[in-house]
């Protein structure tokens, strides 16, 4: 069972949109932002409030990469594994993050601090290898510098 979630956040979100099928993705985006994932209970309420079948809500929630049904870390680390980044050492960067945080790609640390994802290309191949820590793009990233980025991300807020 998942821990109880604060449903008032959802009420605030739902108040901003017309309660119809078209609002579904916007509501889910706001839910993802507010809760950092899409909790089951919240999806059930979204379905009943927007009058969309739960199966549809589930389908949309699993279709888009931007949505996650599992709690995500405060800081999401995306390591680009596109061709250019791969050649310039993305694998070493992934190894380093895995070693430092003890998680594999797709997993989240137990304290919900970090989530590690691999992505296929972020369109910044000239800066390869690219790592996105929170909202910050790091070009020409080095495996040996990863601990710095992680510390900064953990210390400061993930906005910058």
């Amino acid at each position: 069972m998942q821990p109880c979630v604060d449903m008032t956040l959802l009420d605030d979100i739902l108040a901003q949109y017309p309660h119809e099928e078209q609002s579904l993705i916007q509501v889910l985006q706001d839910v993802q932002r507010a809760y950092n994932y899409l909790p089951c209970e919240v999806l059930e309420k979204v379905a009943s409030e927007l009058k969309v079948p739960l199966a549809k809500v589930f389908s949309v929630s699993t279709f888009y990469k931007a949505f996650s049904l599992n709690p995500q870390g405060k800081v999401i680390i995306k390591v680009c594994t596109g061709t250019a980044c791969h050649i310039r050492g993305a694998t070493q960067i992934i190894d380093e993050v895995e070693r430092r945080l003890g998680i594999k790609p797709g997993e989240t640390t137990e304290d919900l601090g970090f989530t590690l994802h691999t992505v296929n290309c972020v369109g910044a191949c000239a800066m390869a290898p690219v790592v996105i820590v929170g909202d910050k793009y790091v070009g020409a990233a080095k495996a040996s510098d990863m601990h710095k980025y992680l510390t900064v991300a953990k210390g400061g807020d993930n906005e910058n």
Partner: peptide, 17 residues
Amino acid sequence: SAISSSSRGAGREIAPP
């Protein structure tokens, strides 16, 4: 509308919520 497809691409499958 009890069932739907979930995920996409190679992982797509038919599943209940």
